[in-house]
Design a protein around this nucleic acid. Sequence first.
RNA 1: GCAGAAAUGGUGGAAUGGUAGACACGAGGGACUUAAAAUCCCUUGGCCUUUAUCGGCUGUGUGGGUUCGAGUCCCACUUUCUGUACCA
Length: 920
Amino acid sequence: MDYNHKEIEKRWQRFWRENNIYKVTEDPEKKKFYVLDMFPYPSGAGLHVGHPLGYIASDIYARYKRQQGFNVLHPMGYDAYGLPAEQYAIQTGQHPEKTTVDNIARYRDQLDKIGFSFDWSREVRTCDPKFYKWTQWAFMQMFNSYYDNDLKKAQPIDKLVAHFSDHGSEGINPACGKELSFTAEEWNSLSEKDQRDRLMNYRIAYQGETMVNWCAELGTVLANDEVSEGLSVRGGFPVEQKLMNQWCLRVSAYAPRLLDDLALVEWSDSLKETQRNWIGRSEGAEMRFPVAGKDIDLEIFTTRADTIFGVTFMVLAPESKYVELLTTPDQKEAVEKYLEEVKHKTERERQIDKKVSGVFTGSYAVNPLTGKEIPVWVSDYVLAGYGTGAIMAVPAHDSRDYAFARHFDLPIVPLIEGADVSEESFDAKEGKMINSCGPKLDLNGLEVKDAIAKTKKFIEEEGLGKVKTNYRLRDAIFSRQRYWGEPFPVYYKDGVAYLMEESALPLLLPAVSSYLPTEDGQPPLGRAENWTTPEGYPIEVCTMPGFAGSSAYYLRYMDPHNDNELVSKDADEYWRNVDLYVGGAEHATGHLIYSRFWNKFLFDLGLVCEPEPFKKLVNQGMIQGRTNFVYRIKNTNTFVSHGLRKEYDTTPIRVDVNIVSNDVLDTDAFRNWRPEYADAEFILEDGKYICGYAVEKMSKSMFNVVNPDDIVDRYGADTLRLYEMFLGPVEQSKPWDTNGIDGVNRFLKKLWGLFEKAEKEPAKEMTREEKKAVHKLIKKITEDIENFSFNTSVAAFMIAVNELTALKSTNKEAMEIITRLIAPFAPHIAEEFWHRLGEVGSVADAAWPVYDPAALVEDSIKYPVSFNGKTRFMIEVPAGTSKDDVEKTALSDSNTEKWLAGKTPRKVIVVPGKIVNIVV
RNA sequence: GCAGAAAUGGUGGAAUGGUAGACACGAGGGACUUAAAAUCCCUUGGCCUUUAUCGGCUGUGUGGGUUCGAGUCCCACUUUCUGUACCA
């Protein structure tokens, strides 16, 4: 009987479904293992072959762990809130829920065909009220918490309130937006509204006026990781900076822990590095420069305290509060004109157009070390959101300050010996200091590193400022002016935000008449009828961003049907955290930061037991498309094959990859593809039409989308799974190339043939050779799965089958072991074999084979003998021969004597089982 | 600019510092067949030698280094990919 993938796969998928094979429950008797995929956003285009790559890898690992006896949690769900569904809704008027549900059904259908071992009883959808209840609930906890910098953890906001009314702001160190100082009397005399306003400065989920990335085209704000090069990641629309009142999460408070705890996880160096850069820790000093003639100190942050003697001017960010304070009447007009200019530049323009611009405020600051007065300028190269929004400029040793000084003809004073600053600044942090001596501090002759330390110490001692560590990580903006997201459980009384009662959760997303903003610019929820509390107070009209639902979904899988808790203590303590997380590297600065933050917050509250959510993380590479081209001779309907195209004047045209096989065009299918090609003529080479190719993003418009359903239909899920793994290392990005899938399919057919022969034979002992082939395979596959090296595993299976074929093996036991080994990779064919071998239950529960090292011991070992590194011949010695004896055998070989020609060997190196190297 | 990763046949890719190119695709040759498909067998980095075998030389982006021995380790450079960017 031939290998009939359709019949086999259908049968066993049904068997798994009907017997709930992949359903998992907490079992204290068994060790747990949690394997998670980043859940997909169900887009309208369905899955292409790139999507399942990571799912297949994690499925192999999950199945392997299960066969090793672990209790494996391997769930799947959908990140169902998102912009595409909403935009589709705007265009068609169809409720995004309808689109989303349809897309999910299609995804599920496609996923099912590939034979994953997901426990679908634990499925979650972020747009399901039973799920988003807990997203809203977590927000409420954040609203009711502040971050205590001394305790280094989140605390109830009531504790802070109590402290304020007893002691004022003294004696407590909460993370905040602005550092405020007030007494208990002052606090207690504030109205409720003013107290609540002030608390926003401390809440972990808070409302604040912040500079946001505003995308006018999408009508919403975007998080930093949703913007790339000044354009929105989704849609590619321009993004500008705008001051708006928004909900934010105080992620910045967790920056030190997010940085330090990277030590607790097994992630790739590059990913950790990306996160470190994004968190952006820098140690420096915050210093005060008095302003001449005014009772104001200008606060700046610098990492180069050593360069203080080279400060020739100061610069403020255009949005800095100091601008208004320091602008003199005669500079007022010029400053206002400049601010107006800057405001109209979008983020993108600011980045592309790096022309130096700025304006003088008219004020001077006093360098506290030299007593010299230096001008204060305003320029958009200084960022409001980092440090204090003001800098001391050292043009000799900072390229940006240098460009500015050159443009406005400001003095440049070199501070490092030998630095030539006539053409460019000297930015390196090395060398000996010069020109750095004042009445109280002398840095001359010191190395930069020592000068920084000395200056910092001096600044603290003299009270000129303080040592400070700054982080680049910003608070996450948590409001979106959109419809298709979680509503905030917040209402407004006298313009002040109040939380709803927990019993009001989930706060259901209301129906609206249109998904566009209202006429007066309110978000779509402004259209919802009766969007008020029973008392008539208006409810927040913004919704939460995409990352809200995806930040704690891994916890919900542990206990998905619990309506009383996000996750029960028992479930959390059993499953703890994700042992293996597989997904794309594009989430490095978004989801993976937010999720870690969210988990740490819940950890502080004692609701989860692990400080990090994802222990080991593997980033699967992107699968790019491989586009095929045909070459049309200009102004004709004749197409010339790739090899001959140079002889004609041609236009390359993308052609649907599904009518091309191994770069050979199916010319009949091409004529049927589009009406205009119906009477196409072809100039062939060797009787075939060969297409050209290029690697591009996989997308419909490039005609290079390969659908997994088509592959499954033609070759079967097992072939697809093996082939996706065989393509190359999981972590690596690579183009999808259907060429070559035949090889994997051929292998499965061979395996099938081998099995059918063995199946009929009576059970017997494996021969020495069979045993060797099989145990070599056990060893290799076990190591490979642990190392996530699946491409070499597939190769190992092919070798084993080739070896057994060469041995004319019909051994049942050998096939039984291979069945168990291949079950994680090709579960359908393995399940078929398993049952035909008379086993009961599912192969998913078959124990992982144990490797017997004795099976691999050779009778004899061949050593290549080389002289000075050049291989000359082989010697053979019995296995187990000692190093010394190998050496003796090698030296007494007649070939060796010939080569040595009487010379004495200087050194003999024997590498067991590998090589004998004789150095003359 | 900064950070990270990478560079091996026609292609995808293998190689705990120890016989480079596993495995697969593609290509070439052959068997079977009326024929094709399917299947099976042989060859396949380059160059040289040979009727053929045997054999020799060369070869992992470039240039150095460490080592008995380097694709692998170290230094410098080139190129490519990814991330990030007025972060003071």
